[in-house]
Simulated scan of single mutants.
Amino acid sequence: MNTIIHRAETRGAANHGWLNSHHTFSFANYHNPERMNFGVLRVLNDDTVAAGMGFGTHPHDNMEIISIPLAGDLEHKDSMGNVAVIKEGDVQVLSAGTGVTHSEYNKNKDKEVKFLQIWVFPKTKNVTPRYDQVSIRDISKENEFYQVLSPNKDDQGVWINQDAWFHLGNFTKGSTDEYKIKKTGNGVYAFILEGAVEINGEKLSKRDGIGIWDTESITVKASENARVLLMEVPMTM
């Protein structure tokens, strides 16, 4: 088993006034050659967008882009004609494929929006671009992980063009759950959204991240009430 830990305070940071962003992996002006990616997980940005502000129209291609809102309302518009608002309890995916442009704005004029922006390298390049979002409010569980993303369009949550599975877990202090790797050769990157946990004996706090590979499972124990995002991804392109 191999492990890498990224403490919250070691992440890259960029405060543009309208946008306050923390980068687990190299992004924009933050470049760390030792933190380029975890397998096919390329970007994990923890973003706060000021009221009424946002990202103007910009292009993407050959990337699976996942947005997970944590608070507030984020409005999405893209060149495929999609206009949608996502909020806490939703998961959104933009499969950029051959190319797409989109914008993201804080829908509200009186409060911030907080969301995770996650990029995953695709399994197959130059696919037809695709947009999807789902509500995960009704599938949320206590003290066990529940799936919010997979490679299968008929499975629970959104689906992406990669052999990846994402799970969320809401845990009360003292509770434990085991996560079993779904595909041989994959690793898991855990990001602590709230609270504190122990994962395979490592103590982790809010916004810490841990990557684990060459293992068949991981065990998560809540040291206090906690919320955790697990991202299982291939470790090779």
Rank of each mutant, 00 (worst) to 15 (best):
P122R: 12
K123T: 13
N126L: 10
N126P: 11
T128V: 07
T128R: 07
P129M: 07
P129R: 06
R130N: 03
R130Q: 15
Q133F: 06
Q133T: 14
S135H: 01
S135V: 02
I136Y: 15
R137I: 14
S140L: 13
K141D: 12
E144F: 12
F145P: 05
F145S: 02
Q147F: 06
Q147M: 14
Q147P: 03
V148H: 13
L149P: 03
L149H: 06
P151V: 01
K153V: 11
K153M: 09
K153S: 14
Q156G: 09
G157Q: 05
G157L: 11
I160Q: 07
Q162C: 05
Q162E: 02
W165Y: 08
F166Q: 09
L168R: 09
L168G: 09
L168I: 08
F171R: 11
F171E: 04
T172P: 15
K173V: 12
G174H: 14
S175H: 08
Y179D: 08
K180I: 10
I181M: 01
K182E: 02
K182Q: 12
K183W: 06
G185K: 06
N186S: 03
N186C: 03
G187S: 06
G187R: 00
A190T: 06
F191E: 02
F191G: 06
I192H: 02
I192V: 06
E194K: 15
G195A: 14
A196R: 09
E198Q: 05
I199C: 02
I199P: 00
N200W: 02
G201M: 08
K203Q: 01
S205R: 05
D208E: 04
G209K: 03
I210D: 01
I210R: 00
I212H: 02
W213F: 05
T215C: 11
T215G: 01
E216M: 15
S217C: 05
S217E: 14
I218C: 00
I218A: 00
T219S: 10
V220S: 05
V220L: 07
A222F: 00
S223M: 15
